[in-house]
Design a binder for these strands. Structure first.
Lengths: 206, 206
DNA sequence: GTATGTTTCGCGCGATCC
DNA sequence: GGATCGCGCGAAACATAC
């Protein structure tokens, strides 16, 4: 039995720190400034290589699987980068990178040495994220400047289409309603006419 | 040949003309739209007309020399990955990766230069692309499957909203039509009744 | 459990472009 | 000489077999 040749393993949250399960992550403008530190006593001492996870129901709610440093990798940074870009509309690589770096070293509870390599890593990752965004045409880079564009026009197009359809329907309804109105009047009139006949005819029997 | 149109800094390098064998989506049903939308001179049709602008001539068997030998890096792969995902709606990492790898080795009509490292590289890059797509919630990774979702928030929401509205309208129309139908019948009946009265009343005058 | 193969991907060196 | 980022090593995370 070969390994499933086509598998896309644990793509869901991996080294997340405290996030909930990859639930409905609405928009990319949602980076919960995590970095919520642990409880009281720091527990960040550099242990040996392996920090085997104990039982879940232990003393404190231990984090998930902490990788090397920080929260995660490209995944997390992409989110943050996206958020920044979206909120700024126009910015630069350095601005984004600086902010993210600051965010990471500033927060995070206590003595978590924000080594220089961490900053390097973050900056490298920001490039990755930006490149993908650029490739997807979600942002545009014009000589050092980054502009937040929109999402590819595919959706917009659909939306426009649907909206047009809606209008058509509304229009149709209008017509139907008008027609109906006329009919009702006619019915009423007819009824009156009938009533008239009935009155004239009086109580005659047939 | 460098296109310094967009992109901040210089996240660009040779454009390598036609990238792949023209057909980017040649698997199954595809959607008319795709991610990429910019790129001025986008002329995909060149089969074996590779315009490698860098040294390429004779010595190519090297391995340490010259880095950028393919089209590009993350940027390009992101685009391709995105296209694939969008056209498939549901797929897996391996499917996408395999296709891209094939696409790349298939093109380039000459010596089998599709070294193993190239494939490795591509596969590694696909992970990167997928990860940011995941982070942006543009796709969803469920177990081993990848689903193409849409572009973030608002658009989708609006779309969904409009669609619901449309349904409501359609429903309304249905009801109106039914009512109308009934009315028409009634009118007909009434008319008949009136005719009946008229007949009975005969030629009397009032 | 242990051993072993596979998948996912953190991370950063150093080539390249400016 | 700094800005960009290609590229791939190797270690977790995961799966399966023993």
């Amino acid at each position: 039995d070969r390994y499933s040749r086509y598998t896309f393993g644990h793509l869901n949250q991996k080294t997340s720190s405290g996030e909930g399960p990859g639930a409905a992550s609405m928009s990319c403008g949602n980076v919960p400034t995590h970095c919520q530190s642990n409880h009281g006593t720091n527990n960040m001492a550099s242990h040996h290589e392996n920090a085997i996870l104990f039982n879940e129901g232990s003393r404190a709610a231990k984090k998930k699987r902490e990788s090397r440093l920080k929260g995660g990798g490209l995944r997390q940074f992409s989110n943050i980068v996206c958020q920044k870009l979206e909120s700024k509309v126009r910015t630069t690589y350095n601005e984004v990178a600086d902010e993210i770096v600051a965010e990471f070293s500033g927060a995070r509870g206590d003595a978590a040495a924000s080594s220089e390599s961490d900053e390097k890593n973050i900056r490298r990752r920001v490039y990755d994220a930006l490149n993908v965004l650029l490739a997807l045409d979600i942002i545009a880079g014009d000589k050092k400047e980054i502009h937040w564009k929109g999402l590819p026009n595919t959706r917009i197009k659909d939306l426009e289409e649907i909206k047009a359809l809606r209008l058509q329907l509304v229009n149709k309804i209008g017509k139907k309603v008008a027609y109906l109105k006329g009919l009702e009047e006619k019915v009423v009139a007819d009824n009156e006419t009938i009533m008239g006949w009935q009155y004239l005819i009086g109580g005659w029997k047939f």
